[in-house]
Structure formats: structure tokens, C-alpha cells
């Protein structure tokens, strides 16, 4: 029994040897780039002393994690991180799919290319530069809004960088502005891959555009949507550092609404330079993401096994 099992496996491997061979460079790369460093998670549980080496340093259990949970701010940063990233996932996906579908509708090839280039533009600049652009709009002294837009509506200038209440919207808008183009290109590639026959058949049946989108486009790009969403969920505890740090200029009064785990950790470690604590933060973020993804993948695979990631 066991023997025939072996023979079968060997046969299978022989049949698929070319495919396995193809995967070798990628797998080797992942092992070097991703799996070997994973050993480093032990740093999170150590009090690193270089004289003793990383392995020789003392174990200190969860002490490096304490600062993430101990303070009054722990709740705020966790809440902010989840709420922002959660709403980004939903808004980005909806917006990007909408734009991709519409882009697919544009008849003129030239116009389609032009629009596509333009909406991808914001993705090309770094968040630091975005921070400067936002400053040029919002600066209380000579920003575009205070100088030109608000007076048009007869409104008083606003000290944007000292008023927390506006920032959840500002950050969301900036994020959407920057990320939509990128996601949209990915969805567009999937939409282009859809066989035209489906649409032709639907048109003959007299289905409306809206109906076609709902029953052809969206279901057919569902695998891509699922991947993108699951990936985003896996990173829900990580935030775009530039967005939350550089764009609000690290302004103190805004901190209750702009502080996320990454910015908190960064500020705390600026003065300490402690790799144990930064590893701990990273591990915590990965763990939560991992659990959430396993959960959502489980739910997805319950509904449709094909769409699940693994």
C-alpha cells in the first residue's frame, strides 16, 4: 500500500517536474527574502545585548510588547488603525471598481488612455511630497483653501492643523486620491480579461448596463477583488506611515485622530532605537492580520471555494 503510494507520488512529480522546475527561482527567493529572516521574531522576546549576540541575549518574555498596551493611548491608536484601514478597504475597493468599469466603457481609445494616466498620477509621488501639497492647500497663513476657496463662501479661515474634527475626512480623501489609480489599474486588467461573448449575449437578451455590471463584470472579477481585500485585511494593523505622519505634519493637537500604531511606535522609538520593541510591534501587527485573514479566508471558502486564497 505504502509502496504504491510512493510510486504514485514519484510518478506525479515526474509528470509535473517541468512545472516544479519553473517554481524553483521564486521559491528559493521567498525562502531567502522572507522565510530566513522570520527567525528574527525571537528578537521581539529578547533584551538584545550585542556583546552576547542575538541568540545569547536574555529572554524577557512579553516585556517588549508592554508599551503597546500599557498606556491610555493604546485604545486610541488601535481604534484609529482599524477604523481608518477598515474604511479605506471598503472605499478604495468600491471607488476603484467603479472607476475601472467606467474606464472600460469609454469608447475613445485616446481618452481612455489619457484618463487612466491621469488617475494613476497621484500614486507616483511619495507621501512626503503629498504632505507638502496638502500643506500648500491647508496652511492657515497662505494655503489655497483659506486664501481662495473659503472666502468665496464667506467663511472665516480655519486653522486646519489644529482642528482634529476635519482630519478623518482629510486623511480619507488624500488616501482615496492617492490609492484609487493603482487599484483601478489592477481591476481594469481583470475586466479586460473578461470574454466579450458574455456581454454580447447579455446585450442580445436586453440586459441593461447596470444589470450587466452586476451579473457579469463583478462576479467575474470577484477573485481579484477577494485577493485584494484579503491582502488589505492582512495588513489592517499596518498603516501608511507617510499618510498619518507626514500629511498631518505630526501636529500634536491632531494626534487623537491621526495617531495609529505605526506613528506611535515610531515616535516612541525615535529616542530609544530599540530593535526588540520594534520587532514586537511588527509581530503584533502581523499576528492580528494573520488571524483576521485566516478568518476571512475561511468565510470566503465557505461561500465559494474557488475564490479562497488557499
Amino acid at each position: 500500500m505504502a509502496k504504491t503510494g510512493w510510486v504514485q507520488t514519484l510518478k506525479k512529480i515526474k509528470r509535473y517536474r517541468a512545472l516544479f522546475l519553473m517554481m524553483v527561482p521564486g521559491i528559493v527567493y521567498l525562502i531567502i527574502n522572507n522565510y530566513m529572516p522570520m527567525f528574527g521574531v525571537i528578537i521581539a522576546f529578547k533584551d538584545i545585548n550585542y556583546a552576547q549576540g542575538i541568540l545569547g541575549s536574555d529572554w524577557i518574555g512579553f516585556k517588549n510588547f508592554e508599551y503597546l498596551f500599557k498606556t491610555d493611548d493604546a485604545f486610541t491608536i488601535t481604534r484609529n488603525t482599524i477604523l481608518y484601514n477598515g474604511s479605506f478597504i471598503i472605499l478604495n475597493t468600491v471607488m476603484a471598481i467603479g472607476v475601472a468599469i467606467m474606464l472600460n466603457e469609454v469608447r475613445s481609445k485616446f481618452a481612455a488612455r489619457f484618463y487612466q494616466s491621469v488617475i494613476l498620477l497621484p500614486f507616483l509621488i511619495s507621501m512626503v511630497v503629498v504632505g507638502y501639497l496638502v500643506l500648500s492647500m491647508l496652511s492657515s497663513e497662505n494655503g489655497y483653501l483659506n486664501m481662495n476657496i473659503l472666502p468665496m463662501f464667506g467663511m472665516e479661515p480655519i486653522s486646519w492643523y489644529f482642528e482634529p474634527k476635519y482630519w478623518p475626512y482629510i486623511l480619507t480623501i488624500v488616501q482615496l486620491w492617492k490609492a484609487t489609480g493603482y487599484l483601478c489599474v489592477i481591476f481594469l486588467a481583470s475586466i479586460i480579461g473578461i470574454d466579450n461573448e458574455y456581454y454580447e449575449a447579455a446585450t442580445i437578451d436586453g440586459a441593461s448596463k447596470w444589470h450587466q455590471i452586476r451579473s457579469i463584470t463583478v462576479p467575474l472579477i470577484m477573485p481579484t477583488i477577494t485577493i485584494m481585500t484579503l491582502l488589505a485585511i492582512g495588513r489592517i494593523f499596518y498603516s501608511d506611515f507617510g499618510l498619518f505622519y507626514q500629511v498631518p505634519l505630526n501636529s500634536g493637537p491632531l494626534q487623537p485622530v491621526t495617531d495609529v500604531i505605526d506613528t506611535y511606535v515610531y515616535r516612541g522609538l525615535m529616542t530609544l532605537g530599540d530593535i526588540g520593541m520594534s520587532s514586537a510591534a511588527g509581530l503584533y501587527q502581523s499576528m492580528v492580520g494573520f488571524i483576521l485573514v485566516l478568518l476571512s479566508n475561511y468565510i470566503v471558502s465557505k461561500r465559494n471555494k474557488e475564490n479562497a486564497l488557499f
Binding site: 508599551y67 505630526n250 500634536g252 487623537p256 506611535y264 515616535r267 525615535m270 529616542t271 530609544l272
Partner: peptide, 16 residues
């Protein structure tokens, strides 16, 4: 170090 990390964040919120 736990305290220093936390204080750094409070500082940033008010000091400037």
C-alpha cells in the same frame, strides 16, 4: 523604555 516610548507620544501631542 516602555515609559519613555509612551512619554514621547504625549510630548508630541502637547509640547510644540
Amino acid at each position: 523604555k516602555t515609559e519613555v516610548a509612551a512619554v514621547a507620544n504625549v510630548n508630541n501631542q502637547y509640547k510644540a
